[in-house]
């Protein structure tokens, strides 16, 4: 039973990170029907900004807790700024272009951002300071769940609740839902669609940055390539849950995290990715629009 619980929490940690990144994919897709391949890179940039800010603040001798808060804030602000700029440069001019063009633009941006960070920083792995405080009450369970795992799970849960509230009840959230349903209609009823799209990118990127800083602090190292694999996994999670659906992304992330962790634990980690993708194929065969995605109604 202990072994099961350990795997359960390890999957939950992983899944929470996937879910945080997957939310960005799903929100962007819901609104402009674009797979934002550069989203993983935003996550990586968030982690890097967290690193440099933490480094600078440490050199000025700030106390540990304030470093954690300030570094995360900076990461969120910068990731949001990058997301906003990315949309302006690479996607907005392509709004009326053929459907695949923005996708290629996104792949190009992903390659560009990876190499930009590699050249500006380094291709080596860099040590990331552990920003998480140690929670004394977790000492008893340290073999099952560590402090940073706990923090990741709690923060992810809080962020997701906030996001749900934001989408449900604020004016901007309503505008987002309207745009996702029908962009033209939303425009006609006076929604500023450009603004909504920008806000979507900003929110999605900030969520990715939260994930980036958390995981970098949990793992203790980063390099320019971390965004790529996490991005693909998160994208898988988003599709699994039904792309375009916010609760779907959360569910998809968790399911993917658990699949990988249980597969490693009870079968073999050699094939964890094979299992993850096979699960995706099986789910999509039975539910072609993902777990919580709505099948589009086709009117002829």
């Amino acid at each position: 039973m202990d072994y099961f619980l350990e795997l359960f929490f390890s999957g939950l940690t992983r899944g929470s990170i996937y879910a945080l990144i997957a939310l960005g994919y799903t929100m962007v897709y819901g609104i402009i029907e674009l797979i934002n391949f550069a989203h993983g890179e935003i996550y990586m940039i968030g982690a890097f900004v967290g690193l440099t800010v933490a480094g600078v603040l440490t050199s000025f001798g700030f106390p540990a807790t304030s470093i954690m808060v300030l570094a995360s804030m900076a990461a969120i602000v910068y990731a949001a700024a990058y997301g906003y700029t990315l949309e302006k440069i690479a996607y907005r001019p392509l709004r009326s272009a053929p459907r695949l063009s923005p996708l290629i633009s996104a792949i190009g941006m992903s390659i560009f951002l990876q190499n930009y960070v590699m050249l500006a920083q380094t291709s080596d792995f860099i040590s990331f300071p552990s920003l998480t405080p140690e929670f004394a009450f977790l000492d008893k369970y340290s073999s099952t769940i560590g402090s940073s795992d706990f923090l990741i799970i709690v923060v992810a849960a809080v962020v997701m609740v906030l996001l749900t509230l934001f989408i449900k009840f604020t004016r901007m959230g309503k505008a987002m839902r309207a745009t996702a349903q029908n962009r033209k209609m939303a425009m006609l009823v006076g929604v500023n669609v450009d603004q909504v799209i920008s806000v979507t990118f900003i929110v999605g990127s900030s969520l990715a940055a939260v994930g980036g800083v958390l995981i970098a602090s949990h793992i203790g190292q980063i390099n320019f390539f971390i965004g790529f694999i996490a991005g693909i996994k998160a994208f898988t999670a988003a599709v699994l849950g039904g792309i375009g659906s916010v609760p779907g992304a959360m569910l998809g992330g968790l399911i993917l995290g658990w699949t990988e962790s249980f597969c490693t634990g009870y079968v073999s980690s050699d094939y964890e990715d094979v299992f993850a993708f096979a699960l995706l194929v099986i789910i999509l065969i039975f539910r072609p629009s993902g777990l919580l995605g709505k099948a589009p109604i086709q009117k002829v």
């Binding site: 992983r14 996937y18 073999s143």
Partner: peptide
């Protein structure tokens, strides 16, 4: 066992070693 380079974390493998 093999681990996937660049994966988000390795705690499942670590649990398995344990």
């Amino acid at each position: 066992e093999g681990v996937t380079p660049g994966a988000v974390d390795y705690s499942a493998v670590v649990q398995k070693i344990k």
